[in-house]
């Protein structure tokens, strides 16, 4: 019950406060721009093209699969764009799970009433609830946009909704877990976001260095899977529920990041 109350409060932070609604409005504006100026025109443009030529140039070897794997072109483009754009939204939205509360001292009021780990994991759960809503809203908006031109095509998108929403939710999970970890270490949401950028670049550089240094080693390929989002390129080749083949990767990332976050949450002076 305590975990539910904490997760609910986390959702309420977004949907029950003025600051939350400003964030939602900003998100909807940006997503509206993406929808109107990227997804919709791209789908229209691609529908008039052969899968070779320009499309091949844009999407390389994945072009055919990307176009044909999903029921409509709109879904394909939505899938492509969401895989790369939604993680950024997730990082922004989930950045303040602990930092502000810790700096303000309100975390101390909470810790009188619940354990550190309970708070940590429940807030992560709350953020994942928000992510479901976020993904669902973006998919529904893509459907609505398609319905403007063709109701039939919009209806064809319905069966794709579940695998896409579930997969995107899985994709976002390690990013939210990363922000759970970083917001324990940071003093503000902004600092947590900066930490995420620094961590990303530094880890990527280290991985590249190791890969170049030990180019021929048999284990070096494993490093391709270290960073969250490593499975995204692979997902572009898959469709429907076969996309779950790569589900263990974000789950492992999430578990590792949450364990690290829980360790720091447990150890830190708060």
């Amino acid at each position: 019950m305590k975990a539910i109350a904490i997760a609910q409060h986390e959702v309420l932070k977004l949907f029950g406060t003025r600051r939350g609604w400003i964030s939602i409005a900003a998100f909807l504006l940006v997503w509206g721009v993406i929808l109107a100026f990227i997804i919709e025109p791209a789908a229209r443009f691609l529908s008039k093209q052969e899968t070779g030529g320009l499309i091949g140039l844009l999407f390389g070897e994945n072009a055919d699969r990307l176009i044909n794997n999903w029921a409509t072109l709109e879904v394909s483009i939505y899938w492509l764009v969401s895989l790369y754009v939604l993680p950024m939204f997730a990082i922004l939205i989930a950045a303040d799970q602990m930092a502000s509360d810790r700096t303000r001292g309100s975390l101390r009021y909470l810790l009188l009433r619940c354990g550190r780990l309970s708070l940590f994991f429940s807030r992560f759960a709350g953020q994942m609830l928000i992510m479901v809503l976020l993904v669902a809203v973006t998919f529904l908006s893509a459907m609505a946009m398609t319905a403007v031109h063709s109701t039939d095509r919009a209806l064809q998108m319905v069966p794709d909704a579940w695998p896409i929403i579930f997969n995107l939710w899985l994709v976002l999970m390690p990013y939210v877990a990363l922000m759970s970890l970083l917001s324990v270490l940071a003093r503000s949401a902004r600092q947590a976001i900066i930490y995420s950028i620094i961590a990303w670049i530094v880890i990527w550089l280290i991985l590249r260095f190791i890969q170049n240094r030990f180019e021929t080693a048999s284990w070096v390929g494993v490093l391709d899977w270290v960073l969250p989002g490593a499975q995204i390129r692979g997902l572009l080749r898959l469709s429907d529920w076969e996309t779950l083949q790569l589900a263990p990767i974000p789950i492992v990332h999430t578990v590792v990041l949450l364990l690290l976050g829980a360790f720091f949450m447990w150890r830190r002076d708060l």
Partner: peptide
């Protein structure tokens, strides 16, 4: 406890 400098969440 009433911690010394703790402040409540300004948004709720």
């Amino acid at each position: 406890a009433m911690p010394q400098d703790a402040r409540m969440d300004p948004y709720f």
